[in-house]
């Protein structure tokens, strides 16, 4: 082994305990094992010291996006963060995500994200698919380069940490005006699908609120899947909104829907938190 894993030793953790009404950081100490991740430590504390400690997890393999928390102040997956990668001389703080209502301890109510997702018109194939060009005997014909482009966005495990860190949601609490980076990117992935037939431009600009994003890139920084949310999804869509909605000539002519796409039915506004 190239790297000797720090064997054992005691570590201090400060875990946020409480609910919407009150709460505080509580100190815990535990004997660690080599290679332990924060989730291991939290579950060990739950088993041996704090049986009512609420924590959400499922895969413990960085694949399901359940175990998001703020570790030493930064959103991270608990199951992917090793204790020995965090400074050894200070306690490790573990807190719930702040952009969403707290349920208890480390668990937050992320249902708002699901309500936003419901607002997004799903993939709908274009009506004029051409046999031999777009589709062959029922198989879609898509180029690998197009797959690669969209595929980056589809790596998303819905940990919602980008939503947590985005100041529009976290600090300004504008959950009823902005879908957040996760869902901007989701729309981008639908939009870039070569065979999709829906024009989501108005949705991006209006209910989606893309104009609120001021490209701070905090979302990109925390993404555990290293998705270039801002550069590859949000900025190209902002450009399209500017080009197509504010182009005076297109405005006079009445905007031609992109790629012969149809507009989705009107939606309700962005969901409230």
């Amino acid at each position: 082994m190239s790297e000797t894993l720090t064997a054992g030793g005691t570590r201090k953790l400060q875990i946020w305990r409480g609910d919407l009404t009150s709460g505080q950081l509580v100190d815990y100490e535990l004997e660690t094992e080599p290679g332990m991740v924060v989730l291991d430590a939290v579950l060990e504390i739950q088993r041996s010291q704090a049986p009512d400690l609420a924590v959400r997890w499922n895969c413990k393999a960085a694949k399901c996006g359940s175990c998001s928390a703020e570790i030493n102040g930064k959103p991270r997956l608990m199951c992917k963060t090793r204790l020995d990668h965090l400074p050894a001389d200070e306690p490790i703080t573990v807190e719930p995500m702040r952009a969403f209502p707290l349920i208890r301890d480390l668990v937050t109510d992320v249902s708002w994200n699901y309500r936003v997702n419901e607002q997004i018109t799903p993939f709908t194939p274009r009506e004029n698919l051409r046999e031999g060009v777009d589709v062959l005997n029922g198989d879609f014909l898509i180029d690998q380069s197009e797959t690669d482009r969209i595929s980056e966005f589809r790596k998303c495990i819905e940990c919602f940490m980008c939503q947590d860190v985005c100041h529009i949601l976290r600090d300004h609490r504008m959950h009823n005006r902005y879908y957040g980076p996760r869902f901007m990117m989701r729309i981008a992935s639908l939009d870039m699908h070569p065979l999709d037939g829906v024009d989501r431009l108005d949705q991006i600009a209006d209910e989606g609120g893309i104009g609120l994003c001021n490209i701070t890139k905090c979302c990109t920084e925390v993404c555990p899947e290293n998705i270039h949310i801002t550069d590859n999804a949000i900025i190209p869509m902002k450009e399209r909104v500017v080009d197509q909605r504010h182009d005076p000539i297109l405005k006079i002519l009445g905007r031609t829907p992109n790629k012969g796409r149809s507009k989705p039915p009107a939606r309700s506004a962005t969901p409230e938190l």
Binding site: I142, I150, H193
Partner: peptide, 19 residues
């Protein structure tokens, strides 16, 4: 598998652009 693709799933492609 085809149905999944028709519902929007994205899979890796062959050189002739099929799944």
């Amino acid at each position: 598998a085809r149905e999944l693709e028709h519902w929007g799933a994205i899979f890796d492609r062959t050189p002739d652009r099929r799944m």
